[in-house]
């Protein structure tokens, strides 16, 4: 079982962190996992994306060219990655910032009001965590528990307040899928 995931949004939304948390969670579940960022010239507010592959077997290319799943945080990223998704794959997208429908009819769609839910928890900045929680809760590629555990590794030294905020945001996302 291989799952190729692309996370995309604008710089500052924590797209790279989403990818690292997914890869870390995959590793903690003893799966093969890779993380690959779009690298080079990037800036806050510009577009950002990264690829994560989680697999039971050795991983060939870490680049998710034709992803099974995309986690889309803003409009331009939906425009860019909607056509790339494998037929039958999944599009998770942030309806707080995207006011259009997915046009393709050969993919599964899961809507997440990531910014609003993050606001309810306490900070818009946790919208990425809401999205991750929704993905893990819905598809189980990595478990919500592993993702929560990956927070402890990737965000060490952030303080209880931020950690709890992120945990709550992740759980709120996961609850959407129930």
């Amino acid at each position: 079982m291989v799952s190729k995931i692309r996370c995309a949004g604008f710089g500052g939304q924590g797209i790279v962190l989403m990818g690292k948390l997914l890869a870390q969670a995959g590793m903690m579940e003893d799966k093969h996992t890779t993380f690959f960022p779009q690298y080079g010239a990037a800036m806050r507010g510009g577009t950002a994306n990264c690829s994560v592959v989680v697999s039971d077997d050795a991983i060939a290319s870490p680049m998710a060219q034709e992803p099974d799943v995309v986690l889309i945080m803003n409009g331009p990223s939906l425009d860019k990655f909607e056509p790339a998704v494998r037929p039958g794959g999944w599009i998770f997208y942030n309806t707080s910032l995207i006011d259009r429908e997915v046009e393709r009819d050969d993919v599964e769609v899961f809507k997440v009001a990531a910014n609003e839910l993050a606001d309810e928890v306490g900070s818009t900045r946790s919208a990425n965590m809401v999205m991750l929680g929704a993905f893990a809760g819905k598809l189980g590629t990595v478990s919500v528990e592993a993702l929560l555990g990956s927070l402890d590794v990737m965000l060490t030294g952030k303080g209880d307040k931020i950690m709890n905020l992120n945990r709550e945001a992740m759980k709120r996302g996961a609850a959407l899928a129930e």
Partner: peptide
């Protein structure tokens, strides 16, 4: 790819 990617 190998330089930029993360892996266990």
């Amino acid at each position: 790819i190998l330089g930029q990617m993360m892996e266990p």
